[in-house]
Structure formats: structure tokens, C-alpha cells
């Protein structure tokens, strides 16, 4: 693992010195801050539509929004938009430096290829964790301001469970981008994995024991339904380890 620390340092400086510091964190924070506001305003918007042309006589009854609606926006953003953004963004995670030629300058120095791949995984997983924690914090603040109530524990649970899923996605994308040079191609494979997990989540045993169970877990937890996330988290972590090892193996075999 020679060179891991030095290269991880470069990766972290790259995040803070380039657009990446604004990209994912900015997007997540935007969704996190606007979600509760949207939850607050949606019923009013729907009610106001009842008086518009073509809707006369139609009475729309919507219950008053509560903190749960704001958190629902947050889980919806996590499981849908942010997951897709992660897959596309991380499509060039390993291959990007190969295509730009920077990997050649780096890997002709005494840094091992496993260290190169692991530093990429750790830095990107770190960026995801920080972005999501900031987003959760933002959602909590705005939810509390808008609704006067914002339970911390349930927000921490749904965010934590989804982070487990997100880290697995980072690992999956490290493998895909080590296998495929094209960012679009790697993203396409990542979407394939997501679709496979979505299909698997319709099957009971897969929902209970595989990482597919993490897809719906945030919503299930938020709705107060009985669910165990232990096995999905364990198998998700195992899948992440396998993917990272696969990425190391694939990248170590590549000629640059």
C-alpha cells in the first residue's frame, strides 16, 4: 500500500481545490434545503389549483403537512436523484486519470496500483459521507424552522442506512470505472446494477438479506414500518469489499 497516504492527500486537496467541492455537496444541500420548503408549500399549491380553469368545482383536500413530509422529500431525493447523480459522477472515478494521462506520471513513481484505487474509493466515499451529513443537517434545520418539530433519531437512521447503500454504490462504481474507460459506459453498467437491485427488491428473501433491502429501507423506516436493516447492511458491506477488491484486481491488470 505504498504511496496511499500521499495520493489520498492529493485526492482530498483536489476536492477542495476544484469544482468538486461545490458539485455534489452543493447539489445535495440544494435538495436538502428546498425539500422541507416544498413539503410545506405543496398542499397550498394543490389547494390553489382548485380555483383554476378546468378545475372549478373540484375540491382538493390535503392534510396539513408535518415534519414527516419534509423527511419524505429527503428520502425521495436520496433514493432517486442523488443515487443517479452518484452513478454518473463516479463513472470516471478510476478511468478519468488514465484518460487524462495523469495516471502515467503517478504510477511510474513508487505508488502501488491498489493504493491508487483505494485512495480513490476512500476520498469519494468521504465526499459522499460529508455531503450527505451536511444535507441531513440542512434538512433538519429547515424542517425544524418550518414545522417546529424535527426528530433527530429517525433522520439519522434513514440517512445512515442510505449512506450504507451509497458507499456500496461508490464501491460498485470504482469497479465499473476500473473495468471500462468510458465514463458513460461505466455509468451505464452502474445503472444496470441499480436496476438489478430494484428488481431483486421485489423478491422477499432478497429484500431481507441482500443489499436490495437498502433501497426501500429509508422510506420503510420513515413510515414506522417493521424492518430489519442488519442483513442488507452486512451483505451490502461485503458487496462493497468485493467490488473494491475487484477494482484493484482489474486496474492492476490494465496496461496504461
Amino acid at each position: 500500500m505504498r504511496g496511499f497516504g500521499a495520493f489520498l492527500g492529493k485526492e482530498l486537496r483536489e476536492i477542495t481545490h476544484t469544482w468538486r467541492i461545490w458539485g455534489l455537496p452543493g447539489f445535495v444541500l440544494f435538495l436538502a434545503l428546498t425539500g422541507p420548503v416544498l413539503a410545506l408549500l405543496t398542499p397550498e399549491l394543490l389547494k390553489s389549483m382548485s380555483g383554476t380553469a378546468g378545475m372549478s368545482g373540484v375540491v382538493i383536500q390535503v392534510p396539513d403537512p408535518i415534519w414527516r413530509d419534509a423527511y419524505l422529500q429527503w428520502t425521495k431525493n436520496l433514493t432517486q436523484m442523488i443515487t443517479w447523480v452518484l452513478i454518473v459522477m463516479l463513472g470516471a472515478m478510476v478511468s478519468g486519470e488514465r484518460k487524462s494521462g495523469t495516471a502515467i506520471l503517478v504510477l511510474t513513481k513508487p505508488i502501488s496500483r491498489p493504493a491508487f484505487v483505494l485512495a480513490k474509493f476512500v476520498s469519494n466515499a468521504g465526499l459522499v459521507v460529508v455531503s450527505i451529513v451536511l444535507g441531513a443537517l440542512g434538512t433538519w434545520v429547515v424542517t425544524f424552522a418550518a414545522f417546529g418539530e424535527a426528530p433527530v433519531r429517525i433522520l439519522a437512521e434513514i440517512t445512515g442506512v442510505w449512506l450504507g447503500f451509497a458507499i456500496m454504490i461508490v464501491a460498485v462504481m470504482s469497479l465499473m470505472s476500473a473495468l471500462v474507460d468510458s465514463q458513460l459506459g461505466a455509468a451505464f453498467l452502474g445503472v444496470g446494477v441499480l436496476i438489478a437491485l430494484t428488481i431483486a427488491s421485489m423478491w422477499g428473501p432478497a429484500l431481507e438479506y441482500s443489499p436490495a433491502g437498502l433501497l426501500n429501507a429509508p422510506n420503510t423506516l420513515l413510515m414506522g414500518q417493521q424492518t430489519s436493516t442488519l442483513w442488507p447492511l452486512v451483505t451490502g458491506a461485503l458487496a462493497a469489499v468485493v467490488c473494491v477488491f475487484g477494482a484493484v484486481w482489474a486496474f492492476s491488470r490494465k496496461e496504461l
Partner: peptide, 9 residues
């Protein structure tokens, strides 16, 4: 290398 790739930042 013939075309060295640097970190532009």
C-alpha cells in the same frame, strides 16, 4: 512520458 498529464489545478 511523451505527453505528460498534469493536474491543472
Amino acid at each position: 512520458p511523451d505527453v505528460p498529464g498534469f493536474y491543472d489545478w
